[in-house]
Amino acid sequence: MELILHSVAAVFVAAGAAFFVTGTVGLLRLPDLFTRLHALTKADNMGLGLIMVGLILYKPDPFYAVKLVLLWVLVMVAGATGSHLIAKRALRRDGEDLQ
């Protein structure tokens, strides 16, 4: 039983990792800022989510799971806000930070 659970978990984690790799490749290869931004958000949310599912399966413990979910939500919010701010700044091209 545990073995199966672990295997499933491993698959999830591997998938998540794949997303991350994709995100990174995208970040490196895609032509312009906004497509890169797209790749990034994908990798972020999906990759992390998958890994977390894997981990929850690996070690089923409610407190642990709640913490992980909270973490995920947090990352999503921060990521969304961040992307938004980055995009806004980049579009306006104002502000001393993004000359």
Partner: peptide, 29 residues
């Protein structure tokens, strides 16, 4: 590590920031 390259090469700060964000997320993972 590959993502880091983006941080280093840029070209725009926005790129670096995005890369940093990705780094953060993968660091969490």
């Amino acid at each position: 590590s590959a993502g880091l390259v983006r941080v280093v090469i840029g070209p725009t700060p926005a790129d670096r920031m995005m890369a940093a964000q990705l780094l953060g997320t993968s660091g969490i993972a």
